[in-house]
Design a protein around this nucleic acid. Structure first.
Length: 673
DNA sequence: AATCCTGGAGTTTTT
DNA sequence: CTCCAGGATT
């Protein structure tokens, strides 16, 4: 990125008279604009760093932004600046205001898996919905929350039996969360919004603290996030949002790209700046990208251009089948690498769906091409991490029954289902948590001595750990806890090989060192318990995998979905599976969502700096059957002179086969007549 | 608790 | 076809 800002970028950075919308095309230096603007606000406009918040969607983006700001701003002037994800900002608000929200300190954060388990339990218990619709109900509840619809409203507006059922589950689910002293991911946004709606005094305090707000990837905000932004900004106009409606690819999970245009209505004095100069790609790649995206309707039209030369034409390679396609990509990478003296890490292969990576991986292995795949199971969904986190959660939140149930028999403590059921009944009747119930005298009457004794043993052991944690070094207490339960032995006992178990133990070690790190940097906590509480809460929102990946910057071809590629750039890019039903995806064709698919294609194209190769397969095995494919409609939208075709000359083997089949069928039909 | 069987789906995914 | 989850069976 050039050091000097171009005139448009300068305008975006220096405009502070009111709310400002920056329409930043792909590769137009939007992160620079945000970071420079933060520096400008601090150094030139007299804003205190602690009165500024910059909000992004991913931890990765937040981390990058933080680093760039601290390089830009001298000394300690950037101290106290908030650069975080929406969810982290919401968490901070909830942490400070937890009493007003009816939460006890040390409340748990349920991830999608925890939430799903809870929902399943509720639906099973009340038996009013088929339990195989858990996923559906979960996403509907998530939609309700991100649209700021309360259970009460959902009940009122339900106009079918099914909708009523979902609304009831929604209500019970929220009650259960409250009982467990827990919140889910969506709550991290919608609880603060509700609080601010009900308490102008609280909102006033936060407005006083946060006087300037910068929001990245604005096209990805949902309703609740937009409301939070509006509330915090109030009438003061201390707002800069950066976004690109052409890169909105998350509408399917509630993002509302129209929030970009709605901004004009909510802030009539909105100043709009367009960034159209691209610092990433060749003119040819941009021409193609512009051509494709111009087929979408636009509220704001942008035309990207760059100072770089025209560059290579795009190649479109048609292969007879998916094997050949993957093989071709693998060998092409090798030959390009040889010819141009490149590294493997200069290449990225992008595709629509995760399953497309399978064959490719195989072919890359066969050709000895090293690769790295992003995505996959995140750090916090690993069982060993979830186990230890559950221990920690229960340690700081007695009411977290989910955590209790997860670990009560992990490792084995010989507490059977009947014991747990009795405990559950007892706790529900009295509206107390399972752990609390363990210590109650009345429990004696409903439980056999043996089960009772084991439960009490567990509860008092945990109390010892907690006291140890509060009075001595919390990290030692946590390590002691893991030793006590002999978790390492449990891992070795359960893993398929010693290697796997060792890996898992290393993951735990990694988790612990991150907790230690979070504790040592915490400046707000007043006691050991608060240290641990803050650390756990912070970690839950952080994907530690990202850090691990960054440490491993070896020379590998990057494999990822188009979604995962947003925000990244690579010298040479392959775009696989340019076929109807794949890109655009079949479901999107059915649902008439072509525009988002086109944006996905646009995102893919604009990842490339120098060279772009698109491939497609003339036939594809799907669900066991071989089917003919047709070329993606997006290819038709590319100017012919920018494409170099390969594999379109003669009929492919697959076509010959189909033709033969057709002939046979025709003859068959003649006989049937 | 482990294993086998059966059925259903088979886009994208962060927090 | 292939992979998963969940239930049933041992």
């Amino acid at each position: 990125m050039a050091n000097a800002l171009n005139p448009r970028q300068k305008e975006a950075v220096h405009y502070i008279a009111g709310p400002c919308l920056v329409l930043a095309g792909a590769g137009s230096g939007k992160t620079s604009v945000i970071t420079r603007k933060i520096a400008y606000l601090i150094e030139e406009c007299g804003f205190g760093a602690r009165n500024i918040a910059a909000v992004t969607f991913t931890n990765k983006a937040a981390k990058e932004m933080k680093e760039r700001v601290s390089k830009l701003v001298k000394g300690k002037a950037s101290h106290g600046l908030t650069v975080s994800t929406f969810h982290n900002l919401g968490l901070n608000i909830i942490r400070r205001e937890h009493k007003a929200l009816g939460l006890k300190s040390g409340f748990s954060i349920f991830d999608a898996e925890d939430a799903k388990g809870l929902l399943k339990e509720i639906m099973l218990k009340h038996n009013d919905l088929e339990s195989d619709s858990v996923d559906l109900v979960q996403s509907e509840i998530s939609n309700f929350k991100s649209a700021m619809i309360t259970p009460q409203q959902a009940l009122n507006q339900a106009d079918s039996v099914g909708e009523l059922g979902v609304a009831q589950v929604f209500e019970r689910y929220n009650q259960a969360l409250q009982a467990y002293n827990a919140v889910d991911f969506d709550d991290l946004i919608c609880l603060p919004v509700n609080l601010f709606l009900n308490s102008p005094e609280t909102l006033g305090r936060w407005q006083h603290k946060l006087r300037y707000l910068l929001v990245d990837e604005y096209q990805d905000t949902n309703e609740s996030q937009y409301q939070l932004v509006k509330q915090l900004v109030g009438g003061r106009g201390g707002l800069t949002v950066v976004g690109d409606d052409d890169q909105s690819i998350y509408a399917w999970r509630g993002a509302r790209p129209e929030n970009l245009s709605l901004l004009k209505q909510d802030f009539p004095t909105l100043h709009v700046v367009k960034l159209e100069q691209n610092y990433r790609s060749t003119a040819r790649i941009l021409r193609v990208a512009n051509a494709v995206i111009s087929h979408n309707p636009h509220e704001f039209t942008k035309t990207l251009w760059s100072d770089f030369g025209l560059g290579d034409p795009l190649r479109l390679i048609r292969c007879p089948n998916e094997d050949a396609e993957a093989e071709r990509v693998a060998t092409d990478i090798l030959s390009q690498k040889m010819r141009h003296g490149l590294h493997f890490k200069d290449f990225a292969v992008l595709y629509r769906g995760n399953h497309q990576s399978r064959i490719l991986e195989l072919k890359l292995q066969q050709n000895q091409v090293p690769y790295a795949m992003s995505g996959g199971t995140s750090f916090f969904s690993r069982t060993e991490i979830k186990d230890i986190m559950a221990y920690l959660r229960l340690l700081i939140n007695h009411d977290d029954d989910n955590a209790f149930l997860r670990i009560i028999n992990t490792p084995r403590r010989q507490i059977g289902t009947s014991t747990l059921e009795a405990l559950g009944r007892y706790a529900t009747e009295r509206e107390i948590g399972l752990l609390t119930a363990c210590n109650e005298v009345g429990l004696q009457t409903v439980l056999p001595d043996q089960g009772l004794q084991r439960l009490r043993e567990f509860a008092s052991w945990l109390t010892r750990i907690r006291n140890n944690c509060a009075q001595n070094n919390p990290m030692n207490a946590i390590r002691g806890m893991i030793d006590d339960i002999d978790y390492e032995a449990w891992l070795f006992q359960n893993a398929s090989s010693a290697k796997v178990a060792e890996r898992r133990m290393q993951n735990i070690e990694f988790l612990l060192s991150n907790i230690e790190n979070a504790i040592s940097r915490d400046e707000e906590a007043e006691d050991n318990e608060a240290f641990v509480k803050n650390a756990i809460a912070k970690l839950l929102l952080m994907d530690l995998m990202e850090r691990q990946e960054e440490e491993d910057d070896s020379d590998r071809v990057q494999l990822m979905t188009l979604h995962a590629s947003k925000g990244l750039e690579f010298p040479r890019v392959f775009l696989m599976g340019m076929e109807e039903e794949l890109l655009p995806h079949r479901n999107s064709i059915d649902d008439d969502n072509i525009e988002e698919e086109r944006r996905l294609c646009y995102v893919g194209i604009t990842r490339a700096q120098k060279n772009l190769t698109m491939t497609l397969s003339a036939s594809r095995k799907q669900f066991g059957e071989k089917t003919e494919t047709s070329m993606s409609r997006f290819i038709e939208e590319i100017p012919e002179e920018d494409l170099e075709l390969e594999g379109f000359g003669q009929a492919t083997q697959a076509q010959l086969e189909t033709r033969a089949k057709e002939t046979v069928n025709n003859i068959f039909d003649m006989f049937n007549d």
